[in-house]
Design a protein around this nucleic acid. Structure first.
Length: 184
DNA sequence: CTTACAAGAATAT
DNA sequence: ATATTCTTGTAAG
């Protein structure tokens, strides 16, 4: 296993558990976010510890601070130019960017997002793109649900998806469906 | 190139 | 609530 010189990881605590972020220092960009449920996929030995970053780790600190806010359900936008988009294919990039436009406290559906992208029937492809979201939480894929207002899926587990939405002020009915009066 | 999927949607029952 | 059918972009073969 080689260890790319410029890749650093930082592990942060949250109410959901340990969340790891991978920072690409040569580009000064965030490469990936690993949710607690994805810890199996995350190999810290593949990266260097961000704690070893001398002085100039302010960008990492800033990234963590924004992450913390988002994990508490506070509105905030991670600077999209600090994300390394090269990890995503064009269609996925478009999906992720569209996803970012869903306002805090609001939800959309996979189908509506597909429609906005000009692929009216690509709801399922949108779901796939979101399932592979390299930046969960930052890119709020938890705000995309099914047309019947059921949750759909989430890489971090459905309980985390529900909790994130609740933190944004959304409520659920007794069948676990989002009580949204309207979709974005 | 072909195939098998995936965090869907619409429809009917 | 469950079953059927229609979908599209991707990764793997």
């Amino acid at each position: 296993m080689k260890k790319p010189q410029a890749f650093y990881y930082f592990s942060m605590k949250s109410e959901f558990g340990e969340i790891a972020i991978v920072w690409r220092h040569d580009k000064k960009k965030l490469m990936r976010v690993f949710l607690p449920s994805q810890h199996r996929l995350f190999k810290s030995s593949d990266y260097k510890d961000a704690a070893s970053l001398k002085g100039n780790n302010s960008a990492v600190r800033k990234a963590c601070k924004i992450m913390d806010m988002l994990l508490e359900g506070k509105p905030g936008m991670f600077p999209l130019e600090m994300l390394d988009w090269s990890v995503a294919y064009p269609f996925q990039r478009r999906v992720l960017r569209m996803e970012c436009r869903i306002p805090h406290g609001m939800v959309s559906t996979y189908g509506r997002l597909a429609h906005k992208l000009g692929h009216a029937r690509a709801a399922r492809a949108v779901g796939t793109a979101l399932a592979r979201n390299p930046f969960p939480v930052i890119i709020p894929c938890h705000r995309a649900i099914r047309a019947d207002r059921s949750l759909g899926g989430y890489a971090g587990g459905l309980s985390m998806k529900q909790r994130l939405l609740e933190l944004e002020g959304l409520q659920f009915d007794r069948y676990g469906r989002v009580m949204a009066e309207r979709f974005w």
